[in-house]
Simulated assay, not measured.
Amino acid sequence: MKTKVYIDGQSGTTGLQIYDRIGAREDLELLRIAEEKRHDPEERKKYLNAADIVFLCLPDDGAREAVSMIENPHVRVIDASTAHRTAEGWTYGFPEYSPEQRTAIANSRRVANPGCHATGFISVTAPLVRMGILPEDYPVTCYSLTGYSGGGKKMIAEYEQTDRGPRLASPGIYGLSLKHKHVPEMQKMTGLAFPPVFLPVVDDYYKGMATTILLQNRLLKNTPTAEQICARLQEYYQKEHFVRVLPFGEGRKTIYANTLAGTNRLEILVHGHEDQTCVTALFDNLGKGASGAAVQNMNIMLGLDETVGLE
């Protein structure tokens, strides 16, 4: 029997990307609501309760509303919004965090898909805290470069208009309040005592992300070199399929943020010297940073090889 899947928010950027990844799979039956009834509460409720797996690709309030409509106790939910990422009763959907996290996802009925910037930050920061290299009270700073698809349909339309001005041809620094919506999950999932100082940057390319933290090695436990930090991260992720730590300083004088666009892979690059280190997570903001991660979580929840449909 095929697994019934419903995407609530099927016409948004994330929803369309999920559909692209699973639409042709023979092990799944995709439930498709009529376009004219997407906002009909009763029709949505019917689909939400008929599925085995529901993807929520909605604004936060819409995601909370959708969850409240689900009465069937067998329905399992993967929420791509920010609404439940730090909520009690929800499992954070970053399986590479630890073997225990992957098991928790497999057994969960409510999984919160990570934010794109948060995925990059957690992938490079959480292991350093968990291994005791990065003190919990370290004053972490982070910047993250993303393609404009991360802003959804409105931003995509703005960047792709034919008569746009020259302003959009240059990087745009935003989130200047330093209270970006991903910061709560970034702090919680890394175990930091204080929120990181986080600054996102959007640029004139469609998709791809590079998230970087900068470290003063003298403030780390046992003052490791950048090369030693790289080796420890390689040990941490050595058994993972989608996350790979490249050899120290491997042949890149420049990191291009769209290098892994179109994949579900995440590469970690470590550069620096004895006194200072930069660690960068390189991935696709629509892949491992959103829709690809959601499909990976679904595969885990269904007891499948988590690479199905993502190679």
Rank of each mutant, 00 (worst) to 15 (best):
T190I: 08
M209S: 11
D204P: 04
P195G: 06
P196I: 02
I268S: 00
T211Q: 03
A261T: 12
K181N: 11
T211W: 03
Q238Y: 12
E227S: 08
E250H: 14
I213R: 00
E227W: 01
C230I: 00
L215V: 03
D275N: 14
L246M: 08
Q238K: 15
K253L: 07
E274L: 07
G262I: 11
C230E: 01
A226S: 15
F198L: 05
S177K: 13
K179I: 04
V201E: 03
H182L: 00
H180E: 09
F242G: 02
F248W: 09
E185Y: 04
E185Q: 15
V243R: 03
L199P: 03
L214A: 12
G272L: 07
G272H: 10
G272W: 04
P196L: 03
L214T: 07
L266W: 02
K239A: 13
G191A: 13
T223N: 13
I213S: 01
K253M: 05
H271L: 10
H180W: 08
L178F: 15
M209Q: 08
T225M: 05
E240W: 04
L266D: 00
Y256E: 11
V202N: 05
P184R: 06
F248A: 05
G251C: 11
Y237L: 07
Q216M: 11
R232M: 13
Q187P: 11
A210E: 00
K188N: 10
K239P: 01
T223F: 06
Q238C: 14
R252D: 12
R218T: 14
T225F: 02
L219R: 15
T263K: 07
I268Q: 00
G249Q: 08
A231V: 05
L266F: 05
K221F: 11
I229T: 03
T211N: 13
A193H: 13
E250C: 12
G262M: 11
H180I: 02
Q238V: 15
L192H: 03
K221E: 14
E227D: 04
R232I: 10
T223M: 12
P196A: 10
R244P: 03
I268A: 01
G251D: 14
T263P: 07
L260M: 04
E274K: 14
L260W: 00
K239I: 02
T212K: 01
V270C: 15
F248G: 04
L214S: 11
T254R: 12
A257D: 02
G251I: 10
L233G: 01
P224E: 09
H273Y: 13
Y256F: 14
D204T: 07
L199M: 15
T263I: 11
K253P: 00
R252I: 09
L220H: 12
R252P: 06
Y237M: 04
D275F: 10
E267Y: 13
R244K: 15
L220F: 10
L260Y: 01
G208Q: 01
D203P: 02
L269D: 00
P196Y: 04
Y206D: 11
V197D: 14
V243T: 15
A226C: 11
G251T: 12
T223D: 06
H182N: 03
L219S: 14
E274N: 11
A193E: 15
T225A: 08
Y236V: 05
K181P: 01
G272S: 05
G251M: 09
K181L: 09
Q187D: 06
L266P: 02
L260K: 01
T190K: 06
H271C: 09
K188I: 10
G272C: 06
Q187L: 04
L219K: 15
N264L: 10
A257I: 08
Q216W: 08
